[in-house]
């Protein structure tokens, strides 16, 4: 399943070469027939995050203060961690924790 992931608000600094946009191919986890946000987060943590994962993840979810949008919709309206992803979805992560 092809997804576009975008990192902003300073989160891009945790990734290799501070790249903001990543086109990735993610499969549902074993035993699940659909990919969920929960699965995606652990995939991102093990495959994309190069440093300070605690700035991104806390207790299996994103760290409080990190906003998530699925196809430009607040993930709180899509089911949060249980939101199911579809091919070609765009998922955006933005940190609100950096200076103003």
């Amino acid at each position: 399943m092809h997804l576009t992931l975008e990192f902003g608000g300073g989160l891009e600094l945790l990734l290799e070469k501070s790249t903001k946009v990543h086109k990735v191919d993610v499969q549902p986890r074993d035993g699940e027939d659909k990919a969920t946000m929960k699965g995606l987060l652990s995939w991102v943590k093990s495959n994309l995050i190069k440093e300070r994962p605690e700035m991104f993840i806390k207790d299996d979810s994103v760290r409080p203060g990190v906003l998530v949008l699925i196809n430009d919709c607040d993930w709180e309206l899509c089911g949060g961690l249980d939101a199911e992803l579809e091919d070609k979805d765009v998922v955006v992560f933005i940190s609100t924790l950096h200076g103003g």
């Binding site: 576009t4 699925i70 196809n71 430009d72 919709c73 607040d74 709180e76 309206l77 899509c78 579809e86 070609k88 979805d89 765009v90």
Partner: peptide, 25 residues
């Protein structure tokens, strides 16, 4: 690329205008 992305079935409508798809809580 939101325009090209598929709209998810059952997405909720805005509680203010009742017309457009809700984008945030």
């Amino acid at each position: 690329q939101s325009a090209a992305a598929p709209t998810r079935a059952g997405s909720r409508l805005c509680t203010r205008c009742g017309e457009r798809k809700a984008a945030l809580k």
